[in-house]
Design a protein around this nucleic acid. Structure first.
Lengths: 370, 370
DNA sequence: ATAAGTTGCTTAAACGCTTAACCATTACTG
DNA sequence: CAGTAATGGTTAAGCGTTTAAGCAACTTAT
């Protein structure tokens, strides 16, 4: 156990007062440049590490943020955790995880527990259909732009638009959208975006898995074959999880992807780039979202001196842009206007700022880690 | 912002000293039962929440554990995080997450950062082929029983044995094992277990994805068809991730699962129960593992008074038992001794303590959340 | 009846840091 | 050249908790 030095040790070693050492290291008080330099050197020499506990007690700031993901079992959790941890870390904050065990009620309890543990602020990714009660504490909600009380989020709608435009440009005129809950703002935005980007004449069906499972039990087959027989040529899922389900189910029934039908997802989960066929999907800019959430939290924390945080949230316009990643699972509609199946040449970009990523079909040099 | 009361508030309200209040609430000093009762009531009435910072400063214990998953992007992370958080929470500890960004070098740095942040102990799930340097701090390593320095882990070998026995009992006599790295103890244990449970005459092939990708680029196809043509009737992957890759690839090529070949995985990832076919896999007892890891950590922390922690780790025998979950992706070998394709009746249990879970093929009442 | 022990509480110090207030110097200003 | 200001430090208080030590008042043993 390495001995831990404190300010007093440095002060004693240099024959100055603790206050001066503190000032020198924080750069706040008035210390001559030379002495400050000496102090910093001594601190480095001793390997001084400030005690967070002491600082926390003194300042009332723990420099810890809480992270609550309602659905901690969600495969997107790692990405969130990593992004938030990174953004927080840059700002000198640690991240404490809170678990609501998938329970909606427990969500609020989890938040409270983190606050009790001394978290200066909380990042929440709430479960669909949940409103976050104003806890009177700095809080940042990552949800959907159409959720009230939202702080920051991806522009799910535009993500949907990109999917819709992509499928439409491939000639698909009969599309089924696969979602889980109709009461999730995120999913509704995605589905809505897809719809809105399709030409008038496109035939659209909606399929909510939850309703299906209520009837046939959890984990039941989606029964997509009838859709194909009715002429659906593309399934646009609002999550890679559902896309995966669709792909395996269709392939099992001998439907060729993307030859017969196209399938797209959302979120670019870890395996999206390695399944066969690789999955066309839409990725959030987690790093950016985390940055904004943390920045907003810090703003609230710093500005906690004023009574009321007049500005309720950052509300950065329409949300962080999403990124379409075109892989193998989407292709020209059979008998569609394009007709050529081999090339899949350049496709129209739907997002001026950053067009879709076209991943090499041969998968050489893909950015996927395996 | 709810006003936060402290010990002094309670003391003042009751006309006693802070020390008495502290003693009463912690049950440590000498306080009359009646007064202690009164104090507890007053504390509850005021909604008193002890300041972790104050306590930490005084005791030198932050009551925070650090969690470092080398591969934070791994889909198993949520399960780990949830289990550890739960176990820690029960013991009154919070969990701080550390990120090593997949970088092996950064693993040690991540651990150090957590220690600097004041974590009393660290739980590490190291990356394959990594040794955790003795940091002179309480640490629990979750890895494989065959890793030196391991604290607790699942009995990956026996998990493999269960898979091997299962496939063998289904009549498979030519099996390919799919892994990622040959230098991962976990994967080697799983693969070794599988092998060891197969009868002498079984033909076994080993397929390491990393080597494949080094040659053909990341995300390349595994090229499983030749194996099937050579007579392989079952693919046993050491991770659901690879099993998924195998299933999609095989199905895409028109191979029927489990009709033509069987596929099994490891870890029971979130989607294992909903893809088509649902995946036969082996699940770790995360809750138990987390409990043991945390308990061991607490033991080290409490016993930190003695100079040397003579007992290096819990080393609970051979590791926590794993649980085989038989779903649809594994079935009788074609032309195998069993022959019947429809039933798949009762199969021999390979683990006396807790036999395999046989998930209903119709998937009614499955325990999977969707 | 007095020494010794027990009970129930208080006093006070300590943990390591921040920060307001204070006090010498030395440097400007009119 | 007195008066003001800036500079470079120090002192001391405080954050909320724990815990060793102290001290009455009572109980028991001798």
């Amino acid at each position: 156990m390495a001995p831990r030095f404190n300010l007093a040790d440095i002060a004693k070693a240099l024959g100055v007062s603790v206050a001066t050492v503190s000032n020198a290291l924080s750069g706040k008080g008035r210390v001559s440049v030379e002495l400050a330099q000496t102090i910093r050197e001594k601190a480095k020499e001793l390997g001084y590490i400030p005690s967070l506990a002491g600082r926390a007690l003194s300042t009332g700031r723990s420099h810890v943020l809480g992270l609550v993901l309602a659905d901690i079992g969600h495969p997107l959790f790692p990405q969130f955790a990593q992004a938030i941890e990174n953004a927080a870390s840059v700002a000198g904050y640690g991240v404490l995880i809170g678990d609501s065990r998938g329970d909606i009620q427990a969500q609020t309890r989890a938040i409270n527990r983190l606050v009790e543990r001394g978290a200066d602020g909380i990042v929440v990714v709430p479960r669909h259909g949940t409103r976050i009660a104003d806890i009177g504490h700095p809080i940042a909600v990552i949800d959907s732009p159409s959720s009230p009380g939202n702080t920051v989020s991806a522009d799910h709608w535009n993500g949907g638009v990109q999917v819709g435009a992509h499928l439409s440009s491939l000639g698909h005129r009969s599309i089924a959208i696969i979602g889980l809950h109709p009461d999730s703002n995120v999913q509704n935005d995605r589905a809505g975006g897809i719809r809105s980007a399709l030409p008038e004449e496109t035939h659209v069906e909606l399929l909510w898995i939850d309703e299906l499972e209520d009837e046939h039990g959890p984990g039941c087959e989606l029964g997509l074959l009838p859709f194909v027989e009715k002429g659906v040529t593309a399934f646009a899922a609002v999550s890679d999880l559902h896309a995966l389900r669709a792909i395996t189910e269709l392939q099992r029934r001998g439907v060729s992807i993307p030859g017969d039908v196209s399938v797209t997802g959302f979120d670019d989960l870890i395996w999206a780039g390695v399944i066969a066929p690789t999955l066309t999907t839409v990725r959030m800019n987690m790093a950016r979202i985390a940055e904004i959430a943390v920045a907003d939290l810090l703003r609230q924390i710093e500005g906690a001196s004023g009574e009321e945080n007049a500005t309720p949230a950052a509300q950065s316009g329409q949300g962080v842009p999403m990124q379409l990643i075109i892989r193998q699972s989407s292709g020209p509609a059979p008998f569609g206007p394009v007709g050529n199946r081999s090339g899949g040449g350049p496709r129209p970009a739907t997002n001026k700022a950053n067009g879709p990523i076209l991943e090499n079909t041969t998968r050489e040099g893909s950015d996927q880690t395996c």
